[in-house]
Design a protein around this nucleic acid. Structure first.
Lengths: 202, 202
DNA sequence: GTCTATACTGAGATAGAC
DNA sequence: GTCTATCTCAGTATAGAC
């Protein structure tokens, strides 16, 4: 039955989002879904492939929005850093309001590094395109510096999605405003003058 | 014998750093260390407590350096954002050169969120002090905005330590220069003018 | 106090009957 | 397609030798 597969998918998404990927056992999923343990392997192959299908379902539409917005930026020689970042980041805002736990899950599996294959499959293409377009908006930044700054940006994005163990989470504000704040922060960072030899020690 | 405990500690640190915490089994550790499985529980209590002791060993000296540098900043009313960030971040540079894999491990366990207890125990106090001092260097930033920016900074730091699945890692530069670049980036972000209603969509 | 042997529980995965 | 039984490998707990 397709019903079995669907029940697994729905239950797994809820449990992964609530408890995280590693903390959710397949036995817990099948118990709540009322199906047999082997059904997961029959329909998906493995626990990781189950996650993969979950991610594809939600991320596909977001990535299509991203690509459309990014190509509009690419066609506009006057596109600002803020607009390009917005094209990449704001399409998350919709799903983030509808499925806040899912966004948290995505941030966590990105940060975990364990599921590198899943991440690369769903984000490598669009993130590469994003960086290529962003690159042209800040031509004055040397290549190596640009890559590091992209690194910082992705770290900040993941953290914004999944929450920090150390900083008290400011409760106010929806996800969209969080993203807008992040864009303000990171755009200033990308425009910062490159320091040759820093004098930062106190 | 203290020898057994020491062998476990050394072997575990190496394997955790090479393969990550979750991916390293206790049976793998004891096989390479040439000790018995139960010895880990006798000396440490659990796998997580073993990690805890590993972290404490390396992080203790770093945190003492941090606190000393931070208090120098606190005593100086003219301390810049860059200097305060440097006080918090540059003490990692030394260990990062000597034990690069260990730094990567720290970034990963921070990002994972699973070992929240270990992270809080070793970093909560010093990071709280850091944020309090940094707060006074940017009084013009509203409180909520400041907390989010701190959030972005911590995400970028963790990512710098553990590497990203999406951005091609720039190979050049030692860890200290990475931190200095990050400080330039984040200081500009903290100083950015707060946008009331952003106009970032393309 | 230190360490060994062994057993327990729960995880993901798989083969084969129906 | 589905289910039972079973396999391997985790982390953990305990009894007891020295």
């Amino acid at each position: 039955m397709l019903d079995t597969k669907h029940k697994i998918l729905e239950t797994a998404e809820r449990l992964f989002a609530e408890q995280g990927y590693s903390a959710t056992s397949m036995r817990h999923i099948i118990a709540e879904a009322g199906v047999n343990l082997a059904a997961i392997h029959y329909h998906f192959g493995s626990k990781e492939d189950l996650l993969d299908e979950l991610v594809a379902r939600r991320v596909g539409p977001v990535n299509r929005e991203r690509v459309a917005a990014l190509e509009r930026c690419a066609a506009d020689p006057k596109a600002t850093v803020e607009e390009i970042m917005g094209a990449f980041l704001l399409p998350i805002a919709g799903p983030a309001e509808d499925h806040p736990q899912f966004i948290r899950l995505m941030g966590r599996i990105y940060a975990e590094g364990l599921l590198r294959g899943v991440i690369e499959k769903h984000f490598h293409e669009v993130s590469t395109r994003f960086l290529a377009i962003l690159r042209k908006a800040v031509p004055e930044v040397p290549e190596e510096e640009f890559l590091w700054r992209a690194h910082y940006l992705f770290g900040a994005v993941a953290h914004t999605m999944c929450g920090s163990p150390l900083v008290p989470p400011p409760v106010g504000g929806d996800f969209r405003s969080r993203i807008e704040r992040l864009i303000t922060f990171a755009a200033a960072g990308f425009r910062a003058a490159v320091t040759e030899t820093s004098e930062v020690r106190g």
